[in-house]
Nucleic acid binder design. Structure first.
Length: 794
RNA sequence: GGGCUUGUAGCUCAGGUGGUUAGAGCGCUACACUGAUAAUGUAGAGGUCCCUGGUUCGAGUCCAGGCAGGCCCA
């Protein structure tokens, strides 16, 4: 018998196992790479999976996508090296270890040493590696598992340090601040994880204020004064805040570009002065009554002031207001401090978070006390109000204990909230918010002040209100290359296109600097050492450099000995690097900046660090950069896709990848998200065991484009199995049966001349060539779903 | 709240640049074959193209506004 005949029913899982065994015995994957030595390469980067959880069915889909294009290019004759890798650092692993040990972040360094804790993280992260390797093989994903990169290895970290140093030398690494939840009572920053603890958000009654910001009359504001009908009119912009203590730190006002605003002629309800105010059209009704519109303007000052008269004078959009200058509310004449950049402050700017839900539709911006404020101000070039402390270091108007700094005039030294537990029971006791409100009512800068109940986050340890406060962080100045990031992004072939131009493109348009700092333990440490007075610092770019600097420090007696002198293997993690002190050129000791870097830096560094570049292997790196193709979930848009792109543009002035598929999610068959809790998660091992890898992969790819969400229905896999593989199998069996009966044999050396072929034969050959052309066309354009299409039709 | 995305037959999905009776597979119904048979062939039924407005001689397709699901970010 020439052609093997199989019995029904065919065991698809068995076929998969047999093929896998044959691959492994004959090293087929290895040969598919080694046999193409010298051929053009097709560069692929494996997005490192984190091995701290079991793989799911969506990983099978993501990896099937990767596998398809790598194999296709291999079949076209290219060499496609595929280095596997593991992402091993980061918060999810730390949280898992904390949970398993029953500890919190505060216990690290006390109940458990940093050394033991990090050891535990290292063990935990590789716990599922065996499962991942198993799935990788069973699903038939070809990737090099024998020589993967691992982000916690010293060589990998060393590469990250070298890259950081390159950025540092280009002036792209700097220390600044970011607005984070901060507990003055506990003296510590809070993570979003801590803020999500139950009970942190409480209803509190605060003094709120609608402040009047006086518009300066210049060409930017001319239209307002024209509508008011007097060049010397008192025109104010109204902004509401639930935290009046932030008003002295105001440096800007934010409007929504498309929101309609109105100019209203009326009176200040406390001083009875005639004024003109600007607020959102949608909110005029909150402050002005129907009756007031009809009330006489004349005679209000002498009336009982119960009814506030008003008149509409004009309407503008937010875009009309942008750029208008206004007078500082708490000015230097009243004893409040000058600050750096104040000539650029006190301007109306646009912001996308402005709504007309509450307040006045205009948001008071204090860049030191709000994350949104900070971001909007940074985008618009508005400075923050910062004052120097006794050491000359710039800081916000509130110190770390929660008090106004001394420079704050009549309010200097006042507590922002009651952080020290002082007595508030006295009859004439006033909170800072109340004192500020009284001042504003007196000098005609408050349009309305009232008590208002709202929810506000509190520190889970001290029960005191949280402040949003500027905390030190290290940044990569991605905004310096923003235009180039956008420009190069346009050269990338995104599948689907909308992810590149929309989600990713918009993200780049609104880019802020990349906050690298993480106050954690398990990750790549920041390789920067500084003197205590912050005047001297060094960025270490390699282990060799570190050793040399340690030798200098030992010579200067800053360190007693070099812990790496006798050639033992270096561990660059905490706590070891924290125990290294270096010496500055002027002879001062330097201490490591205690932060870790964002794990996304680790993964963005894959193209370099997987080869231990730039320490070594420059030739290998250049041969394998940039990638021709990568694929990952759409949730990586601001993660891996961004960090790859950002680092490539800053370091190499290049894209990191030319083609990218951003695949969607795999949902349960009812369209719900898969979760262990709902019990609707599909086990990839069971699926492959039941249906075999071929039907599983075919279903995942052919059923819907990978960038759409896929509703995973096992019945669909059954259908694929019957419809496609069943047909294929039956067709083969039919052929095998009769070919064997007739003793048909193909004689490669004596084929029938084309001209002598029957019409039917020629039709079939034509059909085949059309199929090949169609499949190639679709695979060349990175559409794996359309590629199998033609083969499904007869 | 913002960005992106999806909504076409019972199910899963196709439907460049607007143009006759809106398609495929599965499922369903009927018939045929009974040496491919837990198959195969032939035929058929089945749709308010999410809703509302608009542009147009003409809209599943273009525009605006909603509704519902999803992802990411606040």
């Amino acid at each position: 018998m020439k052609y093997p005949e199989y019995k029904q029913p065919l065991d698809y899982a068995k076929v998969g196992e047999d093929v896998l065994a044959w691959w492994q015995q004959n090293h087929i994957f290895e040969k598919s790479v080694s046999s193409r030595e010298g051929q053009p390469t097709f560069v692929f980067y494996e997005g490192p999976p984190s091995a701290n959880g079991a793989p799911g069915i969506h990983h099978v889909m993501a990896r099937a996508v990767k596998d398809i294009f790598c194999r296709y290019q291999t079949m076209l004759g290219k060499q496609v090296p595929r280095k596997g890798g593991w992402d091993t650092h980061g918060l999810p692993i730390e949280l898992q270890v904390e949970k398993e040990l029953g500890i919190t972040k505060e216990d690290i360094g006390h109940k458990i040493s940093i050394e033991d804790y990090n050891q535990r993280c290292k063990e935990t992260v590789m716990r599922f590696k065996a499962q991942w390797d198993d799935l990788t093989q069973k699903m038939g994903y070809w990737v090099d598992l024998d020589d993967p990169y691992v982000t916690f290895e010293p060589e990998y970290i060393e590469s990250c340090w070298a890259l950081l140093k390159k950025l540092y030398d280009k002036g792209l690494l700097y220390k600044g601040y970011t607005i984070q939840p901060y507990s003055p009572a506990a003296g510590t920053g809070l993570s979003s994880h801590e803020l999500n603890q139950p009970g942190t958000y409480k209803d509190v009654k605060d003094t709120t204020a609608v402040a009047q910001f006086k518009v300066k009359h210049d060409e930017k504001s001319e239209k307002l004064f024209a509508a008011a009908g007097a060049p010397n009119a008192n025109v104010f912009i109204l902004a509401w805040t639930t935290t009046p203590w932030t008003l002295p730190a105001n440096t800007g006002l934010a409007v929504g570009k498309n929101i309609p605003y109105q100019l209203i002629r009326t009176f200040n309800p406390y001083t009875f002065e005639p004024i003109h105010v600007v607020l959102a059209k949608a909110l005029v009704g909150r402050y002005f009554s129907e009756k007031g519109a009809a009330a006489l303007l004349e005679g209000y000052a002498e009336s009982d002031h119960k009814l506030l008269p008003w008149r509409l004078e004009g309407e503008f959009t937010g875009a009309d207001l942008v750029g208008i200058n206004y007078e500082r509310l708490f000015d230097t004449e009243a004893g409040f401090p000058h600050f750096e950049g104040e000539e650029n402050a006190f301007r109306v700017i646009p912001a996308d978070f402005v709504t007309t839900e509450d307040g006045t539709g205009i948001v008071h911006i204090s860049p030191t006390f709000g994350a949104d404020d900070f971001r909007a101000a940074q985008l618009a070039g508005i400075p923050a109000l910062m004052v120097p402390d006794d050491q000359g270091k710039l800081g916000p108007i509130v110190d770390r204990t929660g008090r106004y700094v001394a420079q704050m005039g009549e309010f200097g030294g006042r507590w922002v909230k009651n952080y020290d537990g002082h007595d508030q029971s006295g009859a004439d006791y006033k909170t800072l918010d109340e004192s500020i409100a009284i001042r504003m009512r007196t000098n005609g800068t408050a349009f309305k002040t009232e008590k208002y109940e709202h929810t506000y986050p509190h520190c889970w340890r001290t029960d005191k209100p949280v402040l949003y406060y500027p905390l030190d962080s290290w940044f990569i100045k991605t905004t310096a290359v923003k235009d180039r990031l956008i420009e190069l992004n346009k050269t990338i072939n995104w599948k689907p296109e909308s992810t590149g131009s929309g989600r990713f493109g918009n993200w780049l348009e609104n880019l802020v600097d990349w906050n690298l700092s993480r106050s954690r333990y398990w990750g790549t440490p920041l390789p920067i050492w500084r003197t205590q007075d912050r005047t001297e610092e060094i960025c270490i770019g390699s282990i060799a450099e570190l050793k040399a600097e340690i030798d200098k420090a030992v010579a200067a007696e800053v360190m007693t000995h070099n812990p790496y002198a006798n050639g033992e293997k270096i561990d660059l993690h905490r706590p070891y690097v924290d125990d290294i002190f270096l010496v500055s050129p002027s002879g001062q000791p330097m201490y490591r900046e205690p932060d870790l870097i964002d794990v996304w830096f680790d993964s963005g560094a894959v193209p370099y660090a997987q080869w231990h570049y730039p320490i070594e292997n420059a030739d290998i790196f250049h041969k394998n950069f940039p990638a021709d193709f990568i694929a990952e979930g759409v949730d990586q848009t601001r993660g891996w896709f961004f960090t790859l792109h950002a680092l490539a543009v800053m370091l190499e002035d290049s894209v990191a990848f030319k083609n990218v598929i951003a695949n969607g999610l795999v949902l349960a068959k009812d369209g719900q998200k898969m979760s262990k809790r709902l019990g609707n998660a599909v086990d990839p091992f069971a699926t492959i065991k039941q249906f075999g890898p071929d039907a599983t992969r075919w279903y995942l790819i052919a059923n819907a484009p990978p960038w759409d969400n896929l509703k995973f229905d096992p019945a669909g896999v059954v259908e694929v199995q019957r419809r496609f593989f069943g047909t294929l199998f039956n067709t083969y069996s039919f052929y095998a049966l009769y070919a064997n009966l007739d003793g048909f044999e193909i004689d490669e050396n004596n084929r029938v001349a084309h001209a002598e072929l029957s019409e039917l034969d020629r039709w079939v050959l034509s059909k085949l060539q059309s199929l090949v052309a169609e499949v190639r066309l679709q695979l060349d354009s990175y559409d794996p779903t359309k590629a199998p299409g033609p083969s499904r039709i007869s």
